[in-house]
Design a protein around this nucleic acid. Structure first.
Lengths: 242, 242
DNA sequence: GAGTGGTCTAGACCACGAG
DNA sequence: TCGTGGTCTAGACCACTCA
């Protein structure tokens, strides 16, 4: 066996987890201070903190510097639907920042354009209620639809319209998914613990001429997001693989 | 700004990371002992250890109790191809354990069968060289193809044959992907740090009659795995969404 | 300023691996 | 037995929040 006598932090984490899931500590509640908890469990503060770290990594507890440890609200699950469907989730509040830049390194490779190609970046942060729920960076070559992409799209609808215009000729959407820990910036933006895994979706859309018209990098918090992909092998494989 | 003066552990982690990526410390090498490193960086052991924890979470360093910290070999990337393709990767060594069990809770829901339905579980552990590279649990209702599923399939080929027999009538494959930290068992099985995120793929295959013929739970180590899904919206959406 | 978490120290003791 | 990592302690000092 790996575990000898179950380390103290796990015992404490299990106890707190049970109290949270049974409702003895409710969502939004502040936990007792770390000093109080340490005293209650008769452990030192570092040990108590390492127990809380486990709960943080599960997304169950959020630490707020100077205020305390809080039980997170049970969050609505996020389902990312793959296959090039437009994510027209009207319930979300989306803030978008548009930036012009030029393709470099990884981005140039993704879009299969030479380095230096002018791009438009849409940096989208979706909010569900008060908490951020996903982070998306969408890159579109500026040469593609120059008149369709205004410098300052009028809010979410503006960008949605732009993206929809790119949609009809789409021929292939490839989505690459990986799991990793967030970068410090991502953790701060999504307000998640830096020990909570994220789901990263890299989406590349190709039009009928084989040209890449969009690359998107989506970051979804792992505690409440999953991505769904549906395939119909019998119909699809006839065309794709004979 | 969040970071005031970049905590010591990050400075140390950055330094070690640079030494590893520039080749000054080579793959497979043992790092100096934690006590030596702590002395070199003039920090206490807990601080030094927390720096190593960062590298562990990235999959860059592996700790072996009683022996030391080792730089992991750059690992071949694993690409899981979605869409119901048979993963016929002959380069992998696969060990399979077959178990008979009955559907309960989550499994019954997944397979849409009543609780108590007899199932066959294939627990597959793939190895690429010496290190484990993915963990799969495949569940097939026993009532489906009773004569096709022998009690003890003769190694990988036996199971591959079984799974292939289930393939022709497949109508839909749905794959749900999420990111999370591994369970202690998964971490031990895959020999990864419990702070290294994994990619979990839940695959459900339906035949032409709408019955679920297979549910699979795949666990892929996040440091080297990603899943790829390809869709052809213009052809697919005509049939799926009109 | 009082209370909170964030980071770090200097050391103790235990468990594992190899000789 | 010895060197390694694994866990824990009892405090120190700093940074943030709020009154």
């Amino acid at each position: 066996m790996i575990s000898t006598v179950a380390s103290r932090r796990h015992v404490i984490a299990d106890d707190l987890r049970a109290q949270i899931s049974t409702g003895r500590i409710k969502a939004g509640d502040r936990l007792p201070s770390e000093a109080q908890l340490a005293a209650r469990y008769t452990v030192s503060t570092p040990t108590l903190r390492s127990a809380l770290a486990l709960l943080q990594a599960e997304g169950l507890v959020e630490k707020v510097h100077g205020k305390g440890n809080f039980v997170r609200h049970p969050l609505r699950r996020i389902t990312y639907v793959g296959g090039g469907h437009t994510p027209t989730n009207a319930a979300l509040r989306v803030s978008i920042r548009t930036t012009k830049l030029r393709a470099r390194g990884r981005l140039a490779t993704l879009l299969r354009v030479p380095a230096g190609t002018p791009l438009t970046e849409f940096l989208c942060l979706s909010h569900d209620g008060t908490s951020p729920h996903n982070l998306a960076r969408v890159y579109v070559p500026r040469g593609l639809a120059p008149t369709d992409v205004p410098d300052e799209p009028s809010g979410p609808d503006g960008v949605a319209a732009v993206l929809t215009k790119l949609r009809p000729p789409l021929a292939e959407v490839q989505e690459r998914v990986c799991a990793r820990l967030p970068t410090p910036v991502e953790a701060a933006t999504l307000r998640i613990s830096s020990t909570l895994a994220v789901l990263e979706v890299t989406r590349v859309a190709t039009d009928t001429t084989g040209r890449i018209v969009e690359a998107a990098l989506l970051i979804l918090p792992g505690d409440r997001a999953d991505a769904v992909f549906t395939a119909h092998p019998t119909t699809e494989e006839r065309t794709a693989e004979g």
